[in-house]
């Protein structure tokens, strides 16, 4: 298992034209820990997460992975595509909509990055892909195309695709939000295993149970601000900020019956 990365965000700002989606974000993500981000829709959780692998370009501030600035060599000087790709190689990302490639089988989906990016031989890549699929409990599905898999299985293939690259950091953007409720558990359990192995994970989620039990810290966002980052207990059970209280009240009302 490769070492786990840390992430430091300092005064990160992001604009969509005039609209400010991220406001002076300061966030430390320690290596080997799980950080969950919660908050209302449109608060900037995805934007923040996507700044970490520079899928979204932040406008000012710094995002450092293991001390190394991502996206820029200096303020206003973009990093070369090659260096950016090198950094992205060790950052896995899992999307809400899975984003598996439908024209490839599960194994091909996982092997593709190994072959193209890591330049591993086809045979080795297939072997590693099979291992990664076995790890997420899908050894028997390696020859299936995504359209033949359930949502939970597709998301597990997507996780296998990311972990096969041996990342030191994993980003999850609402990995279970597109799933039927009965399929959420299988994905969360894979994520829990990863967390147990000491992977640095940043997880945008509405699964408060996962945040409460697995996260080492929870960040609450609203209107582009990271309102508070603290232990799961302090955020989820004893929140002081009225904005968090009101968000959790809405959440509990929606989930009670």
């Amino acid at each position: 298992m490769p070492a786990a990365s840390s992430v430091e965000m300092r005064k990160v700002n992001k604009y969509y034209d005039k609209f400010q989606a991220l406001k002076d974000i300061d966030l430390s993500i320690p290596p080997g820990k799980v950080t969950c981000l919660i908050g209302p829709s449109g608060s900037g959780k995805s934007t923040l997460l996507r700044c970490i692998n520079f899928l979204e370009e932040y406008d000012s501030g710094e995002v450092r992975i293991d001390g190394q600035l991502i996206g820029y060599d200096a303020p206003n000087k973009k990093m070369s595509g090659r260096r950016l790709r090198e950094m992205r190689r060790s950052i896995g990302m899992v999307f809400q909509q899975f984003n598996l490639w439908p024209h490839m089988t599960a194994r091909e989906n996982v092997a593709e990055g190994l072959i193209r990016v890591r330049r591993i031989s086809k045979a080795d890549a297939d072997r590693r892909a099979s291992e990664a699929l076995a790890k997420v409990g899908l050894a028997d599905k390696s020859a299936s195309h995504p359209s033949r898999l359930s949502g939970g299985q597709q998301q597990r293939v997507a996780i296998a695709r990311a972990i096969a690259m041996e990342p030191r950091l994993m980003l999850f953007d609402e990995p279970t939000s597109a799933l039927d409720p009965e399929l959420v558990g299988e994905v969360l359990s894979v994520m829990r295993t990863l967390a147990g192995e000491g992977m640095t994970m940043v997880v945008v989620t509405h699964e408060m149970g996962f945040a409460a039990h697995v996260a080492d810290q929870v960040g609450f966002m609203e209107k582009g601000e990271l309102v508070s980052v603290d232990s799961p207990d302090r955020i989820l059970h004893h929140p002081e900020d009225p904005r968090i209280q009101s968000f959790l009240r809405t959440y509990h009302e929606r989930n009670s019956f």
């Binding site: 692998n53 899928l55 790709r85 090198e86 992205r88 190689r89 950052i91 896995g92 990302m93 999307f95 984003n99 598996l100 490639w101 593709e112 990055g113 193209r116 990016v117 997507a158 695709r161 990311a162 690259m165």
Partner: peptide, 8 residues
């Protein structure tokens, strides 16, 4: 995006 994210 999935391809870009793994460094393709």
């Amino acid at each position: 995006e999935a391809a870009v994210a793994i460094g393709m």
